[in-house]
């Protein structure tokens, strides 16, 4: 494949701008549902300076990208590969669409497909892993579309809004991702 590997059908993944993006991320955090979908820990508010300090500290240890719409270059979310294990060639992925008007419209799925292509064809990983919470059915369906399989769940591991929820573990192997690419090409 030629061209920009970090560009999909709807979005491109761009490097984080530590000057501008902390303000955007801090604003997304105002929507507590965004935070609850993204993070198992308590939702909280962080000012742009705190976000910037976090990014500056972690930027070299993780692949952190902002999701940008192709249509108008609007930045709508974030995605990252973290906890990369170069011996076992595994990484964890986290993703969130901060702009609520773009939920459920395929942007997250497209961003995840782009990131998986990058993980398997450039970073030479053999597996990508994620956690999703069982109240996030939209995310779960999106990850399945991208090739992730459920590998189990910790029952009632999370407490949100007074109710306990399962913590679901999903993973996709490189061989499975390659098969999926073949079947998608055959369908086209």
């Amino acid at each position: 494949m030629e061209g920009d590997l970090l560009t999909g059908n709807l979005v491109r993944l761009v490097a984080v701008d530590v000057e501008e993006d902390p303000r955007l991320i801090s604003e997304w955090d105002r929507d507590s549902e965004f935070q609850r979908l993204l993070n198992s820990e308590s939702a909280a508010r962080y000012n742009p300076k705190q976000v910037r300090e976090f990014l500056e500290k972690e930027i070299d240890s993780m692949h952190f990208y902002i999701i940008q719409r192709l249509e108008d270059d609007q930045k709508i979310g974030l995605i990252d590969l973290n906890g990369i294990d170069w011996v076992s060639r595994n990484a964890w992925v986290g993703i969130g669409i901060g702009e609520r008007e773009f939920w459920g419209k395929g942007y997250g799925t497209d961003a995840m497909r782009v990131l998986l292509r990058y993980a398997f064809t450039i970073l030479n990983l053999q597996r990508v892993t994620l956690n999703v919470f069982d109240f996030n059915q939209r995310g779960y369906a999106s990850y399945k579309k991208c090739g992730f399989k459920e590998e189990g769940r910790l029952p009632s591991a999370l407490l949100k809004a007074g109710k306990r929820w399962d913590l679901i573990f999903m993973g996709v192997l490189r061989s499975e991702w390659e098969e999926l690419q073949k079947s998608m090409i055959e369908k086209e």
Binding site: V87, R89, Q126, G152, P155, F169, G171
Partner: peptide, 24 residues
């Protein structure tokens, strides 16, 4: 046993499953 993460650990020339066990 709650979770079996397939082929997640490389050790002695092969991949092994990582298993997460738990207790409520």
């Amino acid at each position: 046993v709650y979770v079996r993460q397939r082929l997640m650990v490389y050790y002695q020339n092969r991949y092994w499953d990582r298993i997460i066990v738990g207790m409520p």
